[in-house]
Design a protein around this nucleic acid. Structure first.
Lengths: 145, 145
DNA sequence: ATAAACATTGGACCATAGTCAAAGGTCAAG
DNA sequence: CTTGACCTTTGACTATGGTCCAATGTTTAT
């Protein structure tokens, strides 16, 4: 007898059973065959599929983006440029998030630098800066995925 | 008659009415006085408080962190070091997120570089990398906020 | 045979930060 | 006095990525 129960599959892929079923609901893996007793039986290939999902997730792809990648992977008409385009969109997205965080970091560092850390909070320049009048702040936006 | 209705307050602070009520439920602003007809009446100071919240949010503080900052702000026993400490924790947090994203960015750039973008996806090096055997990957962890 | 380990379903729940809708009460203007 | 703008409450819903539970059924090991 071949095929994996959901427990074996999850273990091989390093996920929990709940996560595997969650991915099934989300359409990231096909609904597997069932035994007579209604147990899910997965082909070995699904281990690779789940590992693919894990790796893509580590690279910052969302589950719906991963779903697209998986679709492309199994679409004979898909081209490398489809994949590359998505990868580059994600690169732009990540760069944008880094930029936003860097801006935030600079602002926080400025605030921290201005505070000596001694005395009562009532005269804290950080809190004063947050309480101050509303400044225009560049909404250099964030069109990420 | 003094005081602001929730609509005026929200407008002055640049938020929606729903968001103001949401912040009230979360304990970020005090429950305001009510008129005889049960309308919320806010003191002018609450405009500043909401703007404080907005700015802190722009700096990457979560609502619960902002709640702490607001508490400190109005605690006569709080010291500047309390605020500074939280600011520096947030700085560490943001630096860590930037580091994670930078690692992801490098990996994505590597993948993208390896793909010429021509031909069918079936031979795409990006998909192959994601499908490949499971590598050890440094979980240099992430003790963020 | 019986208990432990595994599987099934449906649905609730976590955190985050809101957003929206329904059904009603109030206030100001015309 | 009616209309429209404003306010009230409760509670559901959004998106993200799961996690956990109960009640029940199956398989496996002793």
């Amino acid at each position: 007898m071949h095929g994996l129960t959901i427990g074996k599959l999850a273990k091989k892929a390093g996920l929990t059973i709940d996560t595997v079923r969650f991915y099934e609901r989300r359409g990231l893996i096909n609904e597997p065959a069932r035994t007579q007793s209604n147990y899910r039986m997965y082909p070995e290939e699904d281990v690779a599929r789940l590992i693919f999902i894990k790796k893509a997730k580590d690279l910052g792809f969302s589950l719906s983006e991963i779903k697209e990648l998986l679709f492309i992977q199994h679409d004979p008409d898909a081209s490398k440029s489809d994949v590359k385009e998505r990868t580059e969109a994600k690169i732009r997205d990540v760069r944008c998030r880094i930029k936003d965080l860097t801006r935030i970091l600079k602002a926080l560092e400025q605030l921290s630098k201005g505070c000596d850390g001694h005395g009562p909070a009532s005269a804290c320049p950080i809190l004063e800066a947050l309480s101050g009048p509303e400044e225009e702040h560049h909404h250099h936006n964030g069109g990420g995925s």
